[in-house]
Design a binder for these strands. Structure first.
Lengths: 187, 187
DNA sequence: TTAATCATGTAACACGTTACATGATTGC
DNA sequence: GCAATCATGTAACGTGTTACATGATTAA
């Protein structure tokens, strides 16, 4: 149940509404964990029932009413417990879930040129994403000034992971394309 | 619904029981898609209702009875359709889902030495997995002789991805550990 | 003698996605 | 005038995980 803990982590930076939380999630954790707004609201309800957080409603006249969530002691304790007990997911840390690779694996039903097409599209997508990633460092510097430089240090490490990951993916795609192209000529 | 298509893909190599399919899945697709036996049986039922496959039961006296699944024409058509229509998941091809990275991102609540511990454990795990991966190439050669060399070509490409991915992960972990260590000395 | 393998599943739960609904305000 | 933003959710569905059950045979 990592989504709950991700949300605890964000709320630990500061109190937020579900809406803000959703935006913040999208701008930060979403690179390595995805969740839709509807799921986040559901989890927030569950966590309030748990006693990990409390909410208070703010009545607004110019905008829709909103509900601000705050961690409780129990919520902070749970976050700390989860952060310091990492053995659990070390085995799953490496796992991929990629329909793209599955498709390639089974790709012999396709023509080689079709496989080349999907590899090219993949490489393009990686490059696009890498460009965004590179600009993330500046953005992190900016948020680091607001939320504390100590936090930013860890954010930079994960952004660095993103870059390494994407560079490796591009490097592989280049190799794979070359292999398949040589294959066409050789046949 | 990629699991269904993965199963179609395996059954396209040869007819199998749910049990064999589960083993084969574990030994091949599981590097980039995970599924438990119970889920596979459920999906097989759904796919038989769909008309993508049919099964016939084999009564055995020495061992438990078994049920052999065979693709129908509709099943083969669906597989071909899915393989040749890849635009759909190119945006999700890169997505990670990693509680490990989430933990690191939020890791400022931990001590630096705790963060170093989890990075070391991660690197170890990557190395272990990379060693297995390297031996996969031989294993693929072997299965290629049985199921056809054309298939094996694509299997090798995905295995190559596994190696690049793990090497990049290890490279990053080394960097990250160095950064955090310098940080301790500097403070 | 203990564990693994063969072979199948059901039930309950947890997590994730999609579609839908509301309705004012602000910027192009 | 149209889209985006603010702000909240519900309902239905789809997918993935965990725990449980059965019971013979075979290899360490």
């Amino acid at each position: 149940m990592s989504l709950k803990h991700g949300l605890l982590g964000i709320l630990n930076y500061k109190d937020m509404t579900g809406y803000e939380l959703t935006k913040t999630f999208e701008d930060s954790l979403s690179f390595f964990w995805q969740a839709k707004a509807s799921q986040i609201y559901r989890e927030l309800n569950a966590m309030e029932k748990n006693g990990w957080l409390i909410s208070r409603q703010i009545i607004q006249s110019d905008k829709p009413n909103k509900r601000i969530y705050t961690l409780t002691g129990a919520g902070k304790a749970e976050l700390a417990r989860w952060l310091s007990k990492p053995q659990a997911d070390i085995e799953s840390a490496i796992r991929l879930r990629s329909a793209f690779l599955m498709r390639l694996f089974l790709g012999n039903e396709n023509s080689t040129s079709q496989s080349l097409d999907i590899l090219e599209a993949y490489r393009k997508q990686c490059n696009r994403c890498l460009a965004e990633m590179s600009s993330a460092h500046e953005s992190i510097e900016h948020y680091g000034k607001i939320y504390g430089r100590d936090n930013a240090k860890y954010w930079q490490l994960t952004a660095l992971y993103g870059e390494e990951y994407l560079q490796a993916s591009i490097h592989w795609a280049d190799k794979a394309i070359e292999i398949l192209k040589n294959d066409i000529e050789g046949s």
